[in-house]
Structures are given as C-alpha cells and as structure tokens.
Amino acid sequence: MSITQQYLLDTHRARQLGEPAPPAPGEHDWQVVREWHDRRQFRAVLAGHPTHGRLRRALRRWRSLWPRALG
C-alpha cells in the first residue's frame, strides 16, 4: 500500500468516525528537517564542537595542505 492510499484510507476512517483528518503526507517535512538540524547543533554544543562552519573549516584546512602534497 502506498503512502497516498494509506492517507486516503485514514481520511475515510476519520470522516466516518467524526474525527479530524490526518495531515497530508509531506506536510510537516520542513519542520522535521529543522528539528533534526537543531538536534545536531545541540549535540555538537554538548560535545564541545562548533555548531556551524565545520565543513568550510575542513575544506580550508585541506586546501592549505594541498600545495605541500604536490611539492
């Protein structure tokens, strides 16, 4: 059963029981992504790591080593 079929079945059941319809699939995706990002930042703070800029800093460090590696 696909997500759409399950959603339609749940909506039909809710309508028959007089309950509010469930949220549509994908309606809260951005909220989930935001919460996941916040949780990663929180864990980084607890571990004593910077919360952002880690990738850029790693690339800068790698780029600074590149000329010496060719040398």
Rank of each mutant, 00 (worst) to 15 (best):
R68T: 09
R60C: 01
R60M: 06
T4V: 01
P67H: 00
W36F: 12
R60F: 05
Q16E: 14
G71H: 14
R34K: 07
G48Y: 09
W62D: 08
A69C: 10
A24E: 09
I3G: 10
T4D: 07
H49S: 07
R40H: 13
V32D: 01
V45Y: 03
E27D: 04
Y7K: 02
A21V: 13
R68L: 13
T11S: 11
Q5V: 10
Q5L: 10
Q5M: 06
G48D: 02
A69R: 02
H52G: 09
R15N: 10
L9F: 09
R43H: 04
L8Q: 12
R56L: 10
L65P: 04
A58P: 01
Q31N: 14
R13M: 12
L46M: 11
Q41S: 02
L59D: 05
E19D: 06
S64Q: 07
D29V: 04
G26K: 08
W66Q: 08
P23L: 03
R61K: 05
H12Y: 07
V45L: 13
G18R: 13
G53V: 11
E35F: 03
H28G: 10
T11E: 04
H37C: 13
L8R: 10
G18V: 01
T4G: 12
A58C: 05
A69V: 06
Q31W: 04
R61W: 12
Q6W: 08
R54W: 08
T4L: 14
R40T: 09
G71F: 11
W66A: 15
R61E: 15
H52N: 07
P67K: 05
R68E: 14
R54Y: 10
T51A: 08
L55F: 06
L59M: 11
P67V: 04
P25K: 02
H49D: 08
P67S: 08
R57S: 03
W30S: 07
A14F: 00
T11N: 00
T4P: 00
Q6L: 11
G53I: 08
A58H: 07
H49G: 06
L9K: 10
A24M: 15
T4C: 02
L59H: 02
A58G: 09
P50D: 06
M1W: 13
A21N: 13
T4S: 15
A44H: 01
R15D: 10
L55T: 06
R13V: 06
P50S: 12
L65H: 15
P23I: 10
H52S: 10
W62F: 07
F42M: 11
F42P: 01
L55G: 00
R13L: 12
R57M: 05
P25Q: 01
E35A: 09
R68W: 04
Q5I: 04
L17W: 07
D10W: 00
D38L: 02
R60V: 08
L59P: 06
R54K: 14
G71C: 14
R34Y: 05
L9R: 10
R40A: 13
P22T: 00
R60Y: 05
A47Q: 09
